[in-house]
Write a protein that binds this DNA or RNA. Structure first.
Lengths: 238, 238
DNA sequence: TTAAATAACTTGTATTTACAAGTGAAATAT
DNA sequence: ATATTTCACTTGTAAATACAAGTTATTTAA
């Protein structure tokens, strides 16, 4: 039994090059091998190579210049955990620890939910969880997640401590994040938020409301995230 | 004299379809014509059509589903002026008015600028301007812009009142925005900011620091933007 | 010495062809 | 009637080919 799907060649090349950039093999400002060289190196044709480079460019890893080549973009110094661009798989988790405040439980959807819900979602009820995420030991993100309870058996009894929610969804349920949308606001920390994020009451907090799309067209993840941006900023490319 | 460049066919189709979506000709949830139908309709081949659809998908206008087709995504209800994804040309300006607080002037770069500067940029000095932007009469954005003073003749004497900075750069200097990066924070309104945005001192304000890349590889635009997110949120797709 | 032309690269655009894989409806067998 | 199969249609992947257009270094001409 080989459950490994046939991964497209352009995606394979994308991942190789991305890893090389992340690992510092290609550094900021470096020219990537030319498209024709990559064709030779990896035994594929130019359209395939170009598709890989196009994805890298969209994700902000390289910039392409006609006549010159593909130049490696500098990697963000700040946290990109909530990076607005880029693939989910590109999300780093250096020094990131997660504490579960509320383990996944099955509850009805709240009234006046932050995003409109489909009938199917309303009927299913939702899985609710709260997490607090630390960067270098400092609480940075307070994250409230809602997922429609659709074909996710035993999810409430899984171990979330040291594994990311995305990884559990991918490995156990074959759910991949494909895209999403978000609203960003600056608000005053409520007593609850300020307690979790170790802030004074009323201090400014970044509030993100996100709806994430998956490879299942009727399944979405919803997150309400409160960020302490005193020391760190949210970084994004576009 | 025809100064109109040859616009690529895939880009032409992208703009046609985007306009149809914006105008409501194709509505949320609608299936776009299939790739083969678009080939016939516009007299191009499938790779060309696919390139247009790929851009539309990246910009969040459609979602593609293998076996089904391209489905029109709903348009954001909130303001996307600072939309994190999407092309600059897609930025709407409904009900958006701009007031110039400080007309473009040539000044030296500030010390400890928010982004590192190249030697060329430092030598050139910079063009500085401040703008206040209103949505439905309410001040929402306070925008401080820095541009390196490179090949931008007479820019300090142009009329900025009713035209967007981007349009002036495009039409007079052939400068196009290609991408960029940004940091997002929540901060407390300083006295100056709170005065401009009509807020109480200390209220939370969204702060964005952006570096925009152009088709000129050494020319960047820098903006420090303060947003009143009391009534509106910043919306983004990814 | 200097400036212009050339050549050799690079990426961008576009066509053509072929098959794989997912979706959904119609036809068929049970 | 119901379940299964088939078929037509969709997008996804991949190759081979050709030329356009931007960049850079070299060569050539003034």
């Amino acid at each position: 039994m080989t459950p490994v799907k046939n991964i497209p060649r352009h995606q394979k090349l994308y991942e190789i090059l991305r890893k090389h950039i992340s690992d510092g093999l290609y550094r900021e400002g470096d020219l990537l091998p030319s498209e024709n060289e990559l064709c030779q190196l990896y035994g594929m044709t130019r359209p395939t190579v170009r598709q890989a480079l196009s994805t890298l460019s969209n994700d902000g890893y390289i910039r392409k210049h006609q006549g010159k080549g593909s130049i490696v973009h500098h990697l963000p110094r700040e946290i990109g955990i909530l990076s607005v661009s880029g693939t989910t798989s590109a999300v780093g988790n250096r020094n990131l620890q997660t504490e579960i405040i509320v383990k996944p439980v099955l509850v009805p959807w709240p009234d006046n939910f932050m995003f409109p819900l489909s009938e199917i979602e309303k009927e299913s009820g939702c899985i609710y969880m709260e997490r607090l995420r630390f960067l270098d030991g400092v609480p940075i993100f307070y994250d409230i997640t809602h997922i429609a309870n659709m074909n996710l058996p035993r999810i409430t009894s899984r171990q979330f401590e040291n594994r990311s929610l995305f990884r559990i969804l991918r490995e156990h349920y074959h759910i991949e994040i494909k895209g999403g949308e978000q609203r960003i606001k600056a608000i005053q920390a409520s007593p609850k938020i300020s307690r979790f994020l170790n802030l004074k009451k009323g201090e400014p907090v970044l509030h993100l409301e996100r709806k994430l799309e998956t490879n299942n067209p009727v399944l979405f993840l919803y997150s309400s995230i409160f960020c302490n941006t005193e020391k760190y900023s949210i970084f994004g490319r576009f």
